[in-house]
Structure formats: C-alpha cells, structure tokens
Design a protein around this nucleic acid. Structure first.
Lengths: 127, 127
DNA sequence: CTGGTCGTACTACCGTGGTAGTTGTAATGA
DNA sequence: TCATTACAACTACCACGGTAGTACGACCAG
C-alpha cells in the first residue's frame, strides 16, 4: 500500500524548493520554478494541494497566503525512490546498481577516488 | 520527446521475462508472472500491445499466437532509468547517489569488499 | 464605495500505467 | 459437421502526474 514518498518530476522540483527554503508560499515556489519550467501559478498550487493530500507537504495560513513546508526529508524520499528503483531494476542488489553505474556511466578518475574515499569512510564506521 | 525506455513495474516484469527467454508468447509471459502477480491473461496482452506501441517490444505471428521479443536491452533500460533518477534526485551527481547508497542502505562488509573490487577493476581499465 | 488585483478553490482534461471484461474469429477435437 | 476452446482485438475504468482555466472572496487603491 504505502506508495508514499514516490514523487513525480514536478513534485520533486517543488520539494527541492521547499527543502532549500524550509517553507515557501505558492508564489515563491512558482517564482523559483518559472525560469526553467514556465508553469502557470495555478499549476503549482494544484500540485501542492495534491501533494498535501498525499502527505508530503503541509501548509499554514499567513493572512491570505498559504505557506507550505515539507513533511518528509529529502533523505527519506531519496531512500524510498532509490530503494524502489534498485528493487525493480536490479532485484534489490545494490552492488549490481553500483556495478552498472561504473560500467555504463563513464565515471572519471576523480569520481573513482571519491568513491574509494566514501567506501573507506564507511568501512571505518563499520567496525 | 523520446520519453522512451522508462518502464513501469509490470512492464519491467514483462521485460524481464522476455530478456530471460529472448522471446515469449503472451501465455508464456502470463504463466511466468502469474505466481507472484495473479494477473488476468488479457492484462498481459494489453500491456504488451501498449509496450509495442511504445517501441520496447515487437512481435511476430506464429500461427495464431504472437511471439514477443524485446527491442531494447536490459542495460539500456537500466541506463535510462538510473540516469533519470540520478538526474531528478541528485542533480546528476553519481557520487551523491553512491554516497546515499552507502549511508542509507545498510551495506554490509561483503558488499563493501565487492564494491572495492569493482572500483579497482574499473581503475585498471581506466589506464 | 468601488473596481482591479491577489490568491485559493473547484473543475476539467490529457497521457499513461495497470487491470480486465467482452467479442469475434480461428483452430481443434468429438 | 459442430461445439468448445484459445487468442487477439476492442473497449472500458481507475489512479495519478501534470497542466491550466474559471470562479469567488479578500484586500487595496482611487
């Protein structure tokens, strides 16, 4: 059931604005997204209503305006969505996903260094 | 608008059957998926029609039956979908995705070893 | 007081994934 | 030959992401 926290493209764009600002009015979100997307303000408002119904944002009234804030963290959304994709595409095998990233995405030397560092860091914690 | 190669859950399940068997009839796909999903045969057939319209499978007639085969590779679909997710969720930063995997997904020691091996392998090619 | 503007509420529409019933036809078996 | 069955074709729905117009109430400027 809990299809929760799987967001579409626009929804993620809106969340990014909210995550970056803690909270924002419809107008502010619209303003932030307009340059790349050129959406109508009502589109953003409608989407926010849908997102609230779904439980990923909430709002409070400030005068006539609604101030929206996220109710889920970026990390949680990432966890859910990456987990779902890993499950669907790699049968839940995380190393298969990383392996894929290494072979298909042309990872450069710097990135490889960075990855080694991340793993070493992780190993340190592990103990 | 090449939104191509972004597949839903059932579509991926169907593709996995086709990838595993090179080709399959509707009945064979249905048979393969029935245990976990309990779908009607017509559901599979309808989905295959939609997938063909979308260009990810093709079919040839064999007597009265249709034999479907994939027109895109698993690697290509993975590349597209992982790429999209990476873009949407991590602004295209692959190391951010891996970092996320390491911190949120509880990666065990064996997996870490495996990852180091993969990176070393990759580094060897790099030179 | 009154007209425009700001901003939410409501409604609508399209595309697509997912699910399946109904129908028509062709093959098959009694 | 005729009934049953196996299949594909067609049609229909729902949910949801995305997009936006219209309507209505509040608020501000003359």
């Amino acid at each position: 059931m809990a299809k929760t926290h799987t967001l579409g493209d626009l929804q993620l764009a809106i969340m990014r604005v909210l995550w970056a600002n803690q909270e924002a009015t419809v107008a502010q979100v619209h303003e932030a997204l307009y340059p790349e997307r050129g959406l109508a303000p009502t589109t953003v408002a409608t989407m926010l209503v849908k997102m609230e119904r779904k439980g990923v944002v909430q709002h409070r009234s400030e005068g006539r305006r609604f101030v929206y804030s996220p109710t889920v963290s970026e990390a949680k959304v990432q966890r859910t969505m990456v987990g779902e994709l890993t499950e669907r595409l790699f049968g839940g095998d995380v190393t298969a996903l990383v392996s894929h990233l290494l072979s298909e995405h042309d990872t450069n030397a710097d990135e490889l260094e960075e990855l080694k560092r991340l793993i070493a860091e992780r190993e340190a914690q592990e103990v």
